[in-house]
């Protein structure tokens, strides 16, 4: 398989960067997208060029590290698939593929395709947890939770924090990410205790980081590798109004 790649190259955070063209030959269509990039990097290293920096870790679609815009779509053309789970068979021989980093002012580019998503970490740190005593693990069945509630909470918890929602959103909003974390916790009895403080703090942090307003275009759910529902955003809004209404 033969490909022309147009890859965003940027030396560091302050560099302006540009698209550079590379040609690859004799690719195996069963390679993953990241393996294709590995192949390119091997060739670049042999030539003495600077390899393309990109984020990756587990390569099994659960860590949320990988994630690039492929032909202008977050994680590429396949629905609900991470970049590492995308294979070259999804492209045609002779294709030109544009590869750009997830972009937003809030996710500064560190180098090439590698971005700084620490704004997400700060949102989590401001309320995406429950306060509990440390020590022995509590009895798993001590608190009764209905199966459908567990499933709903797990659906929200499936968010891997890759940032595709922000990268796809025309407003650069982090509503889907933040709401998934909020819903996951508030659905469970352990998470209900701190619900008011959590929603206020997490929304405040989300705003402080500079993410945009959610205008409900629903593009985030379409491009989300985990198919996180936009109804999480509705629940976040509900939690926010509830917290404000019951404020003392």
């Amino acid at each position: 398989m033969k490909l022309t790649l147009k890859i965003w190259r940027q030396k560091n955070q302050t560099d302006t960067g540009s698209l550079q063209e590379y040609k690859l030959d004799q690719l195996n269509p069963h390679m993953s997208f990241l393996e294709m990039l590995d192949t390119l990097n091997e060739q670049l290293i042999i030539k003495g060029d600077d390899p393309v920096a990109f984020d990756h870790d587990c390569r099994e679609g659960i860590c949320g590290q990988c994630g690039v815009m492929i032909n202008g779509m977050a994680h590429g053309p396949l629905p609900h698939t991470t970049t590492c789970q995308l294979h070259m068979r999804s492209f045609n021989d002779g294709d030109t593929i544009y590869i750009e980093p997830f972009r937003s002012e809030i996710f500064p580019i560190r180098k090439d395709l590698s971005i700084d998503r620490s704004a997400f970490d700060r949102i989590i740190a401001s309320g995406g947890y429950i306060s509990t005593n440390t020590g022995q693990a509590p009895d798993a069945l001590a608190i009764p939770i209905a199966h459908e509630v567990v499933e709903a909470a797990f659906d929200s918890a499936a968010c891997i924090g890759c940032g595709a929602c922000v990268a796809t959103c025309k407003n650069g909003s982090a509503a889907l990410f933040t709401s998934a974390k909020i819903s996951h916790l508030v659905l469970l009895p352990q998470g209900k205790e701190e619900r008011a403080a959590r929603i206020k703090n997490m929304v405040q942090t989300m705003d402080k980081e500079g993410f945009g307003h959610c205008t409900n275009t629903e593009a985030c759910q379409v491009e989300c590798p985990q198919n996180i529902s936009v109804l999480n955003i509705a629940r976040m809004n509900y939690e926010f109004i509830r917290a404000k209404a019951l404020e003392k």
Binding site: G72, M73, S104, C169, K170, S173, F211, G212
Partner: peptide, 21 residues
């Protein structure tokens, strides 16, 4: 929303949402 809004050289994000939205 202008500041955080992503901008791409090659953009096909339109497939994920409606024009009027």
């Amino acid at each position: 929303n202008k500041r955080p809004a992503p901008r791409y050289q090659y953009d096909q994000r339109g497939r994920a949402s409606k024009w009027y939205s």
